[in-house]
Design a binder for these strands. Structure first.
Lengths: 180, 180
DNA sequence: CTGATTGCAAATGCTTTGCACGCCA
DNA sequence: TGGCGTGCAAAGCATTTGCAATCAG
């Protein structure tokens, strides 16, 4: 009997479908009679240059570091635009800030495992789970559209060593100052 | 072959484990050297008198209607207390407001199906899903703690009749005014 | 009595918006 | 030239907090 087909979604190594996404966005922009601007390009490129989920604030930090001129307002407006274009999705990691996931195109399902103690997030896929979800949804009289599983768990690293590298990292990150 | 064991979680009809929960809370309160107050009692009673998830705002409305004197501040403080005591849990319905679920005691798993169009939320359980989730978690090297599945879907009511009773209800509800 | 609890109003922190100016099509 | 996009600052909104008065034990 074959094992359960879990596939941990690894961050893409290099240059992802960034170009493809930029193209899709530009199509969307054109279709809606909007305009292509350097700020939008900068933001979009930055978002899809990495494959990790992020908050608006984290993205803003990255923006400043890559000496982009885009403001917070534009950032938020671009995030909305991308969501509307279905190129970016909000995911529920349960924090106070909204979290976005760039690794979403073509995938209507998103599953996240969150380490309770250190906040580390692992993204994964599993065909069995998807099929079962689908089945359950139909049986309840609904037509499935989007599914996400959120698992909170404790990682073995923490359990065996008593701590975990991400623990410290995230503690520090949470002390950031807003504005400026 | 038996079908998938879906069980839609129905709201409990009458007087639920309200008393039991109040008792647990009072134990918790005593253990922490805190005090029992009429406001807290009112809020807790109200929360567990129904079995539906709610937002802080909705709860505040209910409070005012049952001519309780408790203020918003106390409400929020009580919600925190209940979470700390593990009698109430935040669930992710993805809105702007936090949503709480009173129907949680003894259940580390919570699955919600959300109607994309009308916002209706159906709570469900499925043993197969739980087992599979558990399995997947372990295979990734984690120890499962809490799991929740969130499914967005379209309901058949809407698909067949073109609309759905909850649609109107929720549209109205979203137009509420804050403060006062 | 003592310190926890409450209500109020002010503060917070994330996100959105109004507005005037600039710039692309 | 029209109107979209931008930055700025101000507004919104849910939630949290400081403080003085009040109340529980």
């Amino acid at each position: 009997m074959r094992g359960v087909a879990i596939k941990m979604v690894e961050p893409m190594s290099e240059d992802p479908n960034r170009a493809e996404i930029l193209e899709k966005l530009n199509l969307f922009i054109k279709r809606k009679g909007l305009r292509r601007t350097p700020q939008r390009d900068e933001i979009v490129t930055l978002i899809f240059s990495e494959d990790e989920h992020f908050t608006a604030d984290e993205l803003y930090d990255r923006l400043r570091k890559s000496n982009s001129s885009a403001s917070r307002a534009t950032l938020y407006r671009t995030l909305s635009l991308l969501e509307e274009a279905n190129l970016l999705h909000e995911i529920d990691l349960g924090g106070d800030q909204k979290t976005y996931d760039p690794n979403f195109v073509d995938s209507p399902t998103h599953n996240h495992l969150i380490c309770i103690d250190c906040g580390k997030v692992v993204e994964f896929e599993d065909d069995h789970l998807e099929i079962l979800n689908d089945c359950v949804t139909r049986r309840m009289g609904f037509r499935p559209a989007k599914q996400s599983i959120r698992i909170e768990a404790c990682c073995e690293t923490l359990r065996s060593t008593g701590t975990c590298s991400d623990l410290i990292k995230n503690r520090l990150a949470s002390k950031k100052i807003h504005n400026k």
